[in-house]
Structures are given as C-alpha cells and as structure tokens.
Amino acid sequence: MNPQLIDPSWLQLAVAAGLVLIAIGVSAARGLGLERDLAVATVRTFVQLLALGYVLGFVFSSARPALIVGILLFMLTIAAWTVAGRQRRPTNRLRLLVLASLTSGCGLTLVLATEVILRIQPWYNPYYLIPLMGMVIGNSLNSATLAVERLDSDLRNTRDRVEALLALGATSRQAAAAPVHDAMKAAMIPIINSMMVVGLVSLPGMMTGQILGGSVPLVAIKYQVLIMYMIAFSTAVTAFVLTTLRARAYFTPAHQLRDEMLAG
C-alpha cells in the first residue's frame, strides 16, 4: 500500500461535486440546456458507484462462482441492451445478437487472459474477473455500437450497389462484403488510436487507480499492457461476430435483401 494514501472523506467528495456545479453554471451561461443532464449524471455517478462498492464488497467476501458468473452475465446483458438501444429500431433480435457477440468476444478474452495467461486461483477470483471484464466490456460496447451503426447505415445507403452485386450472381456474403469490412474497421479504429497514444497523451484509468492505490508502477503498467491487448482482441472478436451475424440478418437464404430490414 501507498503509505501516504489519502482516503477522501465524504466532505471532500462533496467539494469535488462543486466542480460539476461550475460546469452546470457554464452550461446555463452558454444556453446549452445540459444542466439537467449534468445534474442527473452527477447523482447517477455517485449512486451507481457507491452501489457497486457495496456489491463488490459483498461479492469479494462471499466469492461464490455462480454469483460471479451471474454478475458477469448481468454486465454483458446491460451492455447488449445499451448497444441495441442506440440503434434506430432496437429489436429483441438485435439485442440477442449483440449479447451473443459481446459474450463471445469478451468471454473468450476473459477466459484466455485469466485462465491461460494469468492463471488466477481460484478460477473465479472476483478481484481479477470483475474489474478486467468491466474494462473489456466497456470498450467492446463502444466498438459494437459503432459497428452496428456503420453496417446498418451502409447497407441502407448502398442498397443499389448491394442489389447490383446480387444481380450479377454474388452471394449475400459477397454483396455485403464492403459494408461489413467498413463496419469492422470503424469498430477497431478507436482501440488502435488508444494503443498508439497510451502513456504519451493518455494515462489509462485502471493504471492511475492502481498507482494511487499504492501498486508498484511497473506492476500497474504490466496490467495496463495486458488490458490494452485484451481490449484489442475482444474488440476484434466482438466486431467480427457482430458484423457477420448482423449482415446475415439482412438477407434471405435465397440471397435476397430483406425489405423489412431496410424500411424506415
């Protein structure tokens, strides 16, 4: 532990909330209309993280495998619903599809990182699984949102091109190749950018937290490297599964575009 670690008091946090009050003042002065959102976000940040603190405290002390797996699935489900909710027409089918993609991408990443690379003991050790999964899901969620948005808009906007390819005897996979390709790229670019500048212009949150919490900087850095690689992998797998499944939903088995997917 960092011997000089300051444990912020509730009063000190209240003072920090004063910073948001100033931000609200700026919003009001500039007529941005974000005052309400900022206030709600401030309260939500506090309540959600406080609740998390209690939940983690309970989970870490009980450490039952079923409970931990349940929490991981809960995190994935919330993430899937959030991604689907960002789209123009969120359907249950889309929610399930995103859930399947995130589960395969993040789940595979977590298993490889904790069981093959770190070899944590016991396998369900919540001190590792939950924070690592949180980092991976948070990033994969953004990538998945970008991937679906890009794929949907490309398939709608290039319908003529897709049908021209089908009419030349392309399979639906060939006809959707360009939109799928571009959607995967859109999903991957943010993590590549982050990896390019990490340590130069950005200090990642997890590393900052570990160093403040008293970890040896080199250990914190090794974990951060691991996290960045995990995110790159999970983003790629999630985007691959998601764009493949989502593109397939646009076509019938007879390689026809589904009108209902393109309408509205």
């Binding site: 021209a164 030349l168 005897g169 390689h255």
Partner: peptide, 23 residues
C-alpha cells in the same frame, strides 16, 4: 425457381437496373 440456385439463376437471367450502378 426455388430449386435453382439463385446465384446460378441470376447469371442465366441477368438484370440491368433503371439507375446504373458502377463499381
């Protein structure tokens, strides 16, 4: 028609659209 592969069918029965699409 459903017994012919759509990919094969579309090569035998080709279509040109109203608005030309060039790649």
């Amino acid at each position: 028609y459903p017994q012919v592969s759509p990919v094969v069918l579309r090569r035998r029965v080709a279509m040109v659209f109203q608005v030309p699409v060039v790649f």
